[in-house]
Design a protein around this nucleic acid. Structure first.
Lengths: 348, 348
DNA sequence: GTGACATGAGAAAAGCTTTTACCAACTTGC
DNA sequence: GCAAGTTGGTAAAAGCTTTTCTCATGTCAC
């Protein structure tokens, strides 16, 4: 036996294909326009008629065809999410936030993963435009890089989230400076004084921002170690720090959770106790890394879901013609306290 | 200054809104039907006319409105991907495969993350049906669980990928038995004899399948340790094994990469060398875990991207009315060799 | 009883594309 | 010279919904 589209019983029982407003009108013995107005709560008609049409529509399971509706209203109730973040580390929470914010408005999301491939990106953008998306949200894995496609002169609104936008666009990003301050202030608050900073490549804007905030709060007593975003770098950096003569740091502020994890592992191997001897704090709150580290990492969450939510609401506002101030919106980070720092009590 | 939809210069320069086939027809001084036939390579007309229309259409940047097209053709060139895997561990590769397979056919993908919430799932399904999706692909995080929504009597084709399907449906899944066999046979091949199996909860179908294959290949000399899908369980399991009196295993086949990572860490802490003393092999090839473990994990890849690709092509075939045999299709896994097992040479 | 007005409902157009049916002009064959 | 066929193109319908305009009926005031 083989499967074809039309197989299986047709619940709605109507003639082949979907059930349209024609069926509703016929079943209620009214005209199509009356049926439409009844269902949309527009126009004038007897409330008895309106209720009857609604009831019958519900009974026979009528659902309006969004294509036809979109053709007329110029709204497809669809937005596109363009991303070059293949791991989904950043895209997934952003996507969850967008979807969460828009599902109530009947908006669905096309996810288009372009892997830094301009041609692929263009294909996806064209496909989305053909499908009359109400707007596009561009997201990436880096605040200071553009997607490999120009979205600046589309005739649909574009919102940037966690990627660099264009002049006069709306961009949402995390406030890395504030996040870093949150982390370092926490370390200070629990009594740490010799706080080192192990982080990613210096050419990342967010790395420089975080390092700047670190210096502001912690001063310049300990060095900043720039490297790459990997566990092994965190591991190596600890080796470097502990091989140096003189006093060792009593806290590590790491540029992301992977680095933090590598650092924690290196400390354990050296017999340095976390958090008793050294507090370690990460960045990103990537659950799979942060929560599985022993001890689980205290870290900074960039609130990407909230970021996605706001990006979604903004693109919706623009699609509906509501005015939105252009500019870069920095969203605050949040400190997630787990066990890798100890607390004021436990370090005294 | 505030942004509204219509701002920015309109490149196409036409009157407000998109440029339609009317504009093409007018610019080429032909009727609309002629323009349509020219662009679609249908109907009869002079090749000179056809070329001229095509050229002009390209010049003024005409792109057909997919909504109007879909209204007529009953094809929206859109499919929905429904998932309850919030981490994206399984969904992302599947999504990448689907997108990869379908982008060439002009098909875009709605991603709908429902978090085991039946109401949310229903909302998303309804929204997709309203938008006339050509088909739905259901995917999850577990082979032996259903999504919390009934997709069996929709009038669009449904394909299941990495989640349990319904009677008479098409389901794609990884061949975990073959994957497990691949892993254990590799351990045997490099000379290991005392192979233990540390894995997840026994109520997972795939856990039982993998354990079955393990027993077939390795015999019953070493125990199977069932637990949970976490690093700490991998860690604890090694403790258990090494605390027992008698000979220790010389290889660990772990139910996933997280468990394997926990096991590797525990072995290192005990001073047991990986891979010299003990070979460790994981499952999943979750890069972020497997590649960052020290040493990087040899593991089994479930080829989820390929799975997604096939699911995408299948739902497309069904949407086009091509016949497809129902049933469960098991796709082979692939062994990814890194450094956690050593090789025949290095263990002799 | 009639002009003004409110009410309830339907006809038709619009939105954009594709497809079918058709028409006019031209060619061919005898 | 004319029936038959070919060629190049157009008009119109269909697909589904919403919106505007129109119409018929009933009510009210005077």
């Amino acid at each position: 036996m083989s499967l074809q589209k039309e197989e299986g019983l047709n619940i709605s029982g109507g003639k082949r294909g979907r059930i349209t407003i024609h069926e509703v009108a016929a079943a209620a013995a009214v005209s199509i326009s009356t049926a439409s107005k009844a269902l949309n709560d527009t126009g004038r008609m007897g409330s008895e008629t309106r209720e009857r049409v609604k009831r019958i529509a519900a009974e026979i399971g009528y659902r309006p065809n969004a294509l036809a509706r979109g053709l007329l209203s110029k709204r497809s109730f669809t937005v596109g999410l363009l991303t070059n973040d293949t791991y989904g580390r950043f895209t997934l929470p952003v996507m969850a936030g967008i979807s969460d914010a828009l599902v109530d408005h009947g908006v669905s999301v096309f996810l288009c993963a372009i892997e830094d491939d301009p041609a692929l990106a263009q294909i996806h953008v064209d496909a989305m435009l053909d499908k009359q998306v109400d707007g596009i949200i561009a997201t990436g894995k880096r605040l200071d890089r553009r997607l490999p496609v120009d979205l600046s002169n589309l005739h649909v609104p574009v919102v940037y989230a966690f990627t660099e936008g264009t002049q006069n666009s709306v961009t949402f990003r995390s406030d890395d400076e504030q996040g870093a301050r949150l982390a370092v202030e926490w370390l200070v608050k629990i009594g740490r004084r010799r706080i080192a900073h192990i982080t990613g490549p210096e050419d990342f804007f967010s790395v420089r921002e975080r390092a700047g905030a670190y210096h502001e709060v912690a001063g310049h007593r300990e060095p900043v170690l720039y490297g790459v975003w990997s566990e092994s770098w965190g591991h190596d950096a600890v080796e470097q720090l502990w091989k140096r003569p003189g006093e060792k740091p009593d806290a590590l502020f790491c540029g992301n959770d992977q680095i933090a994890r590598g650092a924690v592992d290196a400390l354990r191997e050296r017999g340095v106790k976390v958090p008793q001897d050294v507090s370690v704090i990460g960045f990103d709150n990537w659950e799979i890394v942060a929560a599985q580290t022993r001890p689980p990492l205290t870290t900074v969450d960039m609130e990407l879901k909230e970021l996605g939510r706001q990006a979604g609401l903004t693109v919706l506002a623009l699609a509906e013609g509501r005015p939105v101030e252009p500019g870069v919106r920095k969203l605050p980070c949040r400190l997630i306290v787990r066990q890798s720092c100890g607390s004021k009590a436990s370090t005294e």
